[in-house]
Design a binder for these strands. Structure first.
Length: 589
RNA sequence: GCCCAGAUAGCUCAGUGGCAGAGCACUUCCUUGGUAAGGAAGGGGUCCCGGGUUCAAAUCCCGGUCUGGGCUCCA
């Protein structure tokens, strides 16, 4: 018998608590829905869930959750113990068959024959479970059910769809309340909400799922990001290119995309008897640029970069705001190098992406190394060599990382960088993929110092991922309040009465001449407090207020909307101060 | 794709077989004011699309589109 000692600092204890809460919830569901079959109910990050198959195909509603939660409290008030028992395999199978619990029977049948089968009883509820648990069901200080959902048995869409309930449990009511507040904060920061409120982008029904319209304010931010990106790439030895959105189907045969990636590609378009496909990736285009003439080893590494728009046929159910879309622009680049340049090029790309992500306020990065998938192209020895090269780079840069076995692309292993945002959530941005396959598919060559032809190695990489996803992540990270260099409008010039409008326009003109984005709201007759409120709500970093006093003194009363601080400044001071704060950050390598 | 839920004014939403509504936004007029909403009047609808049931459909039924939650956290 394992007696769990609950302490606040032990993550294991919190997991135990949540798993116990899942059992308590299942007990309540079985009482409310006699005949319910229960599948699995693990603790997860921040909470727990349990999957059920309810009698008569009942589907859970939010109202059902209220009843389940009430019943959980009723059961908990009786403080039934979590009683552990150990059964033999046959005994356990008989018990769960008697209870008509097909999922438990299936699980036991798949356990090794020698495994000790432990079960827990909570009042009338009896479950197959490894444990441990809290001593009794009254020992769960704070819990809340969150939402119902559908989920396939074992996550496989060929299996029956079960009803899942998500919940959360904590050591205390204040902990629970803090967590619920975190959820509310995440909702307030939801990029879809902010995108609408700040008029940054939209997705219109008339356009089709997963397709995004960038509105003027969002387009300004994107343009600033792209300018920063282009400048940095030129400084780091990249050459920038453009390529079309569509190519002959034959090209995708040669690249093996149609063989390995067809499900994610849009269907063919036929023009004058030739089939074309929308591009899901930019690589074949950059490869054709490489192949346009004979290349010398003196040109390598050749780094071709492009903000390339691609189209992928994501399944309708996985689309999500800007984070999962069907048309998006990758900040893509392909590095063509000699085999002995690979290590250095990968290392430079990793450093470049770390530096780039830092300029957007992402200091804390997580790193993953993804290895050979089941469906892979190319020979095994090359894969092993490629994986070893990536691991060496991570070791040299002293980057702690996890290994995602089988998570690589079909043409090579990869290093992914994830940013951690202001709420502690992680998002994949940069990816650096080695590719020995495409150079062979396309018979790429360069002439070496020996006068003979050799095969280059390719590295695919993005730093930000895609403009859409990165913008969505950035928007949530900053909660819509962009730093000055990214803000769509950097300074709004507000007058106390309409009398000051000419001076306000003059000030805005001075700011614009200095390359700053300034605006004078066109709202004649509107009161100043209303214009201040609009500026605050639009998250404009600076509001410059001008009344009769400021006109007389040639000043602006500057309000920093982030801190609320107010200071009178001359127009020259205003231009100098905003000009220096608005400069894009330098890339620190 | 699959399960569930939703779609009513630009936005947030109420209305649930019998006259299409509120707040904000927008337009006009009045107000010229000092750091998060000055006042009044007005305009604005294919109640997502298509079909069905009904004397009558925004409302009920069927199909579609789009959106949202979830679908490899594994006793």
């Amino acid at each position: 018998m394992v007696a769990a000692v609950l302490t606040d600092d032990d993550p294991q204890a919190l997991e135990t608590l949540r798993h116990s809460a899942a059992h308590l919830m299942a007990a309540a569901v079985v009482e409310l829905f006699p005949g319910a079959e229960y599948a699995i109910g693990p603790a997860i990050a921040d909470g727990f869930y349990y999957d059920f198959l309810l009698p008569d195909g009942h589907r859970l509603t939010p109202e059902d959750l209220v009843r389940v939660e009430e019943r959980m409290r009723t059961i908990a008030s009786r403080r039934p113990a979590f009683e552990r028992s150990e059964l033999g395999r046959e005994e356990a199978l008989a018990e769960f068959r008697r209870r008509h619990q097909r999922f438990k029977v299936e699980i036991i049948e798949q356990l090794p024959a020698t495994e000790v089968i432990s079960c827990y009883r909570t009042g009338d509820f009896f479950d197959l479970c490894r444990g441990p648990h809290v001593p009794d069901a009254g020992g769960i200080p704070a819990f809340r059910l969150l939402h119902p959902a559908g989920a396939y048995w074992r996550g496989d869409e060929r299996n029956p769809m079960l009803q899942r309930i998500y919940g959360t449990a904590w050591f205390s009511e204040p902990d629970l309340e803090a967590y619920l507040e975190r959820l509310r904060e995440a909702d307030r920061r939801d990029h879809r909400r902010l995108g609408r409120e700040l008029e940054l982008f939209s997705a219109e029904e008339a356009l089709g799922g997963g397709l995004i319209l960038w509105h003027p304010a969002g387009s300004v931010v994107r343009e600033v990001i792209e300018d920063h990106w282009r400048r940095a790439h030129r400084a780091h030895g990249y050459q920038l290119v453009f390529s079309p959105h569509i190519a002959k189907e034959e090209l995708w045969v040669e690249s093996h995309h149609l063989e390995f990636y067809a499900d994610d590609m849009w269907g063919p378009v036929e023009v004058e008897g030739t089939r074309y496909r929308l591009k899901p990736m930019n690589c074949p285009f950059h490869i054709l640029i490489y192949r346009a003439r004979t290349r010398s080893y003196r040109e390598l590494p050749l780094r071709l970069g492009e903000l390339g728009t691609v189209y992928r046929h994501e399944r309708s159910g996985v689309l999500h705001g800007l984070l999962r879309v069907r048309g998006f622009t990758q900040d893509d680049a392909h590095l063509f190098c000699t085999p002995d340049q690979v290590g250095e090029e990968v290392e430079r790309a990793v450093a470049f992406s770390q530096a780039m992500l830092r300029t957007f306020g992402f200091e804390d990065l997580e790193v993953a190394l993804s290895t050979r998938p089941a469906k892979a192209a190319g020979d095994l020895a090359l894969w092993e060599q490629a994986e070893a090269t990536l691991a060496e780079v991570l070791a040299r840069r002293k980057l702690p990382h996890r290994v995602d076995a089988g998570g690589g692309a079909f043409y090579g292993p990869k290093i992914d960088l994830f940013v951690r945002d202001a709420l502690g959530r992680t998002w994949q941005c940069a990816t650096i993929q080695l590719d020995y396959g495409q150079p062979a598919n396309f018979r790429l060559e360069y002439v070496g110092p020996d006068g003979a032809t050799h095969r280059p190695v390719m590295i695919h990489r993005t730093l930000l991922g895609s403009m859409e996803r990165f913008f969505g992540v950035l928007l949530e990270h900053y909660a819509g309040a962009f730093p000055l260099w990214l803000a769509p409008v950097q300074c709004q010039v507000i007058t106390v009465t309409d009398e000051q409008l000419p001076f306000a326009r003059e000030v805005a003109g001075r700011l614009a001449a200095a390359g700053l984005r300034a605006a004078v709201p066109d709202r004649p007759g509107e009161r100043m407090p209303a214009k201040i409120r609009d500026g605050q709500r639009a998250k404009v970093p600076y509001l410059g207020v001008i009344g009769p006093r400021e006109v007389a003194a040639g000043q602006v009363h500057l309000r920093d909307t982030r801190s609320g601080a107010q200071t009178p400044v001359t127009v020259d001071e205003l231009v100098a101060r905003l000009g220096s704060e608005a400069r894009p950050p330098e890339l620190a390598l």
